[in-house]
Amino acid sequence: MLCRLADIATARSGDKGDILDISLMARDQRTYDLLIQEVSADRVRAHFAGIVGGQVDRYELPRLLALKFVLHGALDGGAAHALRADNLGKTLGAALLRLPIAWPYDGDPSAGKGRGSR
């Protein structure tokens, strides 16, 4: 079954100079394993065509069930330079969540995106 990252994960983005970073966070181990397998740096770079100009790095945080993507040359020269309305890239974490992804497990992929207080 095909879903979007928004159904199974959450994201927050931030900026440093011309570099955008996105935390992609899973709710449980099997979702994290799926993200590791499916959401490569190359795939994120292709998804952000028209926005990212440089390389994309990916870092893994297995204990926190999260991935970090660092997108170089993605903010039009930085927040004090960009012409974009979203000059800080605040919404681009959410833009990553548009990525289509195959959900290989049984059950509704969108049953609860966060771990909450569990």
Partner: peptide, 30 residues
């Protein structure tokens, strides 16, 4: 909760094993 703290812990961090601050380079992976 776990989610709110995780989200801020990773906010604007690049390499989580080498988060540079002037006084200490922090490793968040554990």
């Amino acid at each position: 909760n776990f989610d709110t703290v995780r989200e801020q812990l990773l906010y604007e961090v690049h390499d989580p094993a080498r988060y540079h601050t002037p006084d200490v380079t922090v490793d968040l992976t554990a």
